[in-house]
Design a protein around this nucleic acid. Structure first.
Length: 567
RNA sequence: CGGGGAGUAGCGCAGUUUGGCUAGCGCGCUUGCUUCGGGAGCAAGAGGUCAUGGGUUCGAGUCCCAUCUCCCCGACCA
């Protein structure tokens, strides 16, 4: 490809709309342009990188026998009612009415559509197992699109769905995809950690996220550097550390805390540290209020609460519900004297003594509260987010909290969709059984952004060879000069005939402009051809990642390039 | 949805406080000449409903009201 025939609008200045490194570089290098918040145009150069990623994904998926298909984005809303996810998706679901007044949605994901397909066409155990996948645009009306292509409202996802006859089959399919994912990320040059994760709106029991550590990541991981343990913050299990030291119980007392209700303010008023306080959070799980006790300095994990209660939906109680359930306004709830409500407590509460808690009375708190003496807890479990003060649940060493980008997510869905939507098959005995499903997603655009996030410098992008839009860029200095042009064209043609993806910068620009652009767009190898070298009969090969330059005889060039590309 | 910031040429910005002539600068773009191994020089050009709608005024990019859009932080989320 010749630069003057191509379309690479590079930018010298940092675009004001972008904050994250990858976002800035993608705009500056002419990979993407924004249309509206959360929707991006892929320019030719960006699309080349994207296609490379897609092809790597295809190759690895196909290798393991997954079959590619293409499902519609346009979907009837009925399917979403059928699966029960219409509500779960909420405002994220983009809906509209067609001309016949029928409600349609733009697919945010495709479990419904694939299950509807499979239930019509998979009738026998003989047709199982099967894994189907697609690479397609998804639509989600995100609360807050961010970081360019990392969190957008329209994005490309590789989504795969496995159908098995039983859990053993699912385990195998799941393991296969897990391995495929490791291979894909590795080939794309990303260092990715597989972590245990919450299943969220997808449902199911087991799920792993593939995360790449990055400062601009939106997710938080608990990561142990000594044993490699990693889990998303909200489900990382916390080791129960009950202190055995007996503290003398002081006498229980009600105190005035007028208008003061947050942990911080109550603590300041009563001169008590947050870790000597207990907060009582009222949740509504499947319509029933539940009191959750968490130590003042800890954060509740809704994922853990939901899992423990085996609830379908869980949300913080509204002010009205709290008033009704505790007979007291928001901000003064406490475990003492709480009537007719299930109480579950985090392990960290166990062993606390003489702590502060709400009094279930407006403007009142209790001090010197003690468990068993002042109230009873029947259910103890792990309900909070892990912190960097906790120990690794696996090896007991320290835990680090780190930012990460979610690159992929795999789920064992089980029977959630096949039961709701009746995707069933006949087994050997002629018995109707629901398919056991798994689903597997990769954010394709995110791979591009993550690769850039991981690998860049002041000059620009440093592509890994596997997903670089071009492998080689030829930078002729003074392309107008006949001798330079002759050699540049010759090199260009010979590399191209050997199947190397090469970009020839045939612009009439100064050397500096060309070098800077080549480095900005991050092509792994630049071949610099100038009169200075030609006098000696050599051209230069410059490696983007290292900046290393070697001189080679012009006629040895293709061999040299091949050794580089192979290495 | 809550808090903060911003919208002036393709990009980056000044001008708005204190209303006043044909709305500026840098980059980029076009044409010509020169230059040519790390973002060249000179000359001549093209490009603007100053986000939108309304209002105040002799006069509005500038003041007032409303709306829209974009970005950041938070809440939420796969």
């Amino acid at each position: 490809m010749k630069w003057t025939k191509y379309f690479i609008p590079t930018l010298k200045e940092i675009p004001s709309e972008a904050e994250a490194v990858s976002h800035r570089l993608m705009i500056r290098a002419g990979l993407i342009r924004k249309l509206v918040s959360g929707a991006y145009t892929y320019l030719p150069l960006g699309l080349r990188a994207l296609k490379k990623v897609e092809n790597i994904i295809r190759e690895e998926m196909d290798k393991k026998g997954a079959l590619e298909l293409f499902l519609p984005s346009l979907q009837p809303v009925e399917l979403w009612h059928e699966s029960g996810r219409y509500k779960a998706l909420g405002e994220d679901l983009i809906k509209f009415k067609d001309r016949h007044n029928r409600v349609m949605v733009f697919g945010p994901t495709h479990e419904e559509v694939i299950t509807a397909l499979v239930r019509d066409h998979i009738r026998s155990y003989r047709q199982l197992p099967i894994t189907l996948y697609q690479i397609q645009t998804k639509f989600r009306d995100e609360v807050r699109p961010r970081f360019g292509v990392i969190r957008s409202r329209e994005f490309i996802m590789k989504d795969a769905y496995s159908f098995d006859r039983d859990n053993t089959g699912l385990d195998e399919s799941y393991k296969k995809m897990y391995e495929v994912y490791e291979a894909i990320f590795k080939r794309c040059g990303l260092k990715v950690l597989a972590v245990e994760a919450d299943t969220g709106i997808m449902g199911g029991d087991v799920s792993h996220e593939f995360m790449m550590l990055a400062e601009s990541g939106e997710d938080l991981l608990a990561h142990c550097e000594s044993c490699g343990y990693a889990a998303s913050l909200d489900i990382a299990s916390v080791k129960c550390q009950v202190s055995s030291v007996k503290v003398k119980e002081k006498s229980f007392k009600e105190v005035d805390t007028p208008g003061v209700s947050t942990i911080e303010k109550v603590g300041a008023l009563l001169k008590v540290k947050p870790e000597q306080m207990v907060k009582t959070l009222i949740y509504v799980a499947d319509g029933m209020p539940v009191a959750v006790l968490i130590r003042g300095d800890h954060e509740a994990s809704e994922a853990k609460i939901k899992k423990y209660l085996k609830a379908g939906t869980i949300e913080m109680a509204t002010e009205d519900i709290i008033k009704k359930a505790t007979e007291c306004p928001l901000g003064f709830s406490g475990p003492v004297g709480l009537k007719d409500m299930r109480i579950i407590a985090d392990n960290a509460i166990n062993g606390m003594a003489n702590f502060v808690a709400g009094a279930n009375k407006k403007d009142k708190h209790f001090i010197n509260v003690n468990i068993d003496r002042d109230f009873k807890v029947k259910e103890w479990t792990d309900l909070r987010m892990i912190t960097d003060k906790d120990k690794c649940p696996k090896c007991n060493k320290g835990i680090k909290i780190e930012h990460a980008i979610e690159m992929g997510h795999v789920f064992k869905l089980g029977l959630k969709y096949s039961k709701a939507m009746k995707a069933e098959f006949l087994d050997e005995d002629g018995k109707l059984e629901p398919c056991v499903m798994g689903c597997y997603g990769i954010g394709v655009n995110r791979i591009i952004a993550a690769a850039i996030e991981l690998s860049n410098d002041k000059k620009g992008i440093i592509w890994p060879l596997s997903i670089a839009p071009f492998q080689v860029i030829i930078v002729p200095i003074n392309y107008e000069k006949e001798d330079v042009q002759t050699v540049a064209d010759e090199v260009y043609n010979s590399l191209q005939s050997k199947g190397i993806e090469v970009l020839l910068d045939d612009r009439n620009e100064s050397a500096g402009v060309k070098f800077n652009d080549a480095e900005l767009i991050g092509i792994p190898f630049a071949i610099v051809i100038g009169q200075r070298g030609l006098k000696k009969g050599v051209v230069e090969i410059k490696e983007r990642a290292t900046g290393k330059v070697i001189e080679v005889k012009r006629h040895d060039l293709s061999d040299e390039i091949f050794t580089f590309l192979k290495a």
